[in-house]
Simulated assay, not measured.
Amino acid sequence: MARHKEFDKDNALDAAIGVFSQHGYEGSSTDTLLAAMKISRQSMYDTFGDKRSLYLQALKRYNTDSILRIIADMQNGAQPLDALEAALFAFASRPASEASKGCLGVSAICEFGRTDADVATLTDSASAMLAKAIFTLVKDGQRKGQLSAEIDPEAATQFLGAILSGMKVSARNGASPETLRTIASLAIRSLR
């Protein structure tokens, strides 16, 4: 009887996230995924299902981890505006090797837009979680007089989300940490 090969599901999923982040869904062949995940085709099907199911699991995990990391970075500011700046600066300061891999969430939006309901549900959920955290800080910043009372909190939330997405694309395109920090500083300054 053949022995079942053991592997760490989380490590395999991390490897799939790396492949999908770099090549997108369509650009990631099953063979490339299997090689990166260091598993057999049967192990993939038994554990994750088909390529689409693997992609959805990878996207869900990536989005959750990414948003939780950004929200954790927001905890590094004593005041609301500092917290927003801390999150943007933390992203800008990520190692170039990490930034160059790209954001699977942004990649999914660019590749699928609104054409795939399952992908849209996952990206909408992640966006809503991040927007809630940003909105809370914007409102708190207005109450404390750090942010202009004339700024619409919903618009500011959308603006900061767009800035972060743009920074992710710029990082993937090779923008330096200094350039990304400048973008972050300009964004924060515009809210005063």
Rank of each mutant, 00 (worst) to 15 (best):
L88H: 05
L34M: 15
P95D: 03
A2D: 03
F7T: 11
S29Y: 13
G77S: 09
S29D: 10
E111G: 02
T64A: 05
L33G: 06
R114K: 05
S53G: 04
K139I: 12
A99V: 13
S165V: 11
R181D: 01
Y55I: 06
A184W: 08
L68Y: 09
A15R: 06
D82M: 13
D14P: 09
A78Q: 07
S125K: 13
F112E: 04
A131M: 11
P153K: 03
I109C: 07
L180W: 08
F48S: 08
A156L: 04
I70K: 12
D118Y: 00
H23W: 02
Y25H: 04
P153R: 02
E98Q: 12
Y62V: 06
R94C: 06
A58G: 14
I183R: 10
A131N: 11
R192F: 04
R69S: 15
G166R: 07
L59S: 03
D140R: 10
Y62P: 10
V119P: 02
N76F: 09
E111T: 05
S43G: 07
D46H: 14
F89N: 15
G27A: 03
Y45A: 07
L147P: 00
L104W: 08
A156K: 09
N76T: 01
Q142L: 09
T32G: 04
F91P: 03
A99E: 12
L104Q: 04
L164Q: 11
A131G: 12
M74Q: 00
E26T: 10
R172C: 00
A126L: 05
G49D: 10
I163K: 02
R69Y: 10
Y45V: 07
C110Y: 10
D124Q: 00
F112Y: 13
L33K: 05
D46L: 14
D46P: 03
S185V: 01
T115G: 02
A175W: 13
A120H: 05
A184D: 14
S148W: 00
R69D: 14
G27L: 01
R61V: 14
T121W: 10
E154S: 09
A90T: 09
F20I: 07
E150N: 15
S40G: 14
D152M: 03
I188F: 12
L104K: 07
V169E: 07
S127I: 00
E154N: 11
A128W: 15
C103R: 01
S93R: 03
G102P: 09
Y55D: 05
V19G: 12
A35N: 10
T115M: 01
S176E: 06
L68S: 11
S165C: 15
K139C: 15
R172V: 00
G102S: 08
G24M: 09
I39Y: 15
I183Q: 11
D118P: 01
A171Q: 10
I151M: 04
G18S: 04
F20C: 12
Q75G: 08
G105Q: 01
N76R: 11
G145S: 14
T32Q: 05
T30H: 06
T30Y: 13
D50I: 01
I71F: 07
E85S: 08
F48C: 12
Q158V: 13
I188Y: 05
G18Q: 01
D73G: 11
E154V: 14
G105S: 05
N76A: 04
T179P: 05
Q146W: 14
T115C: 01
N63G: 10
L164N: 11
R143M: 12
N11D: 06
S190I: 11
L33C: 03
H23E: 02
P153C: 03
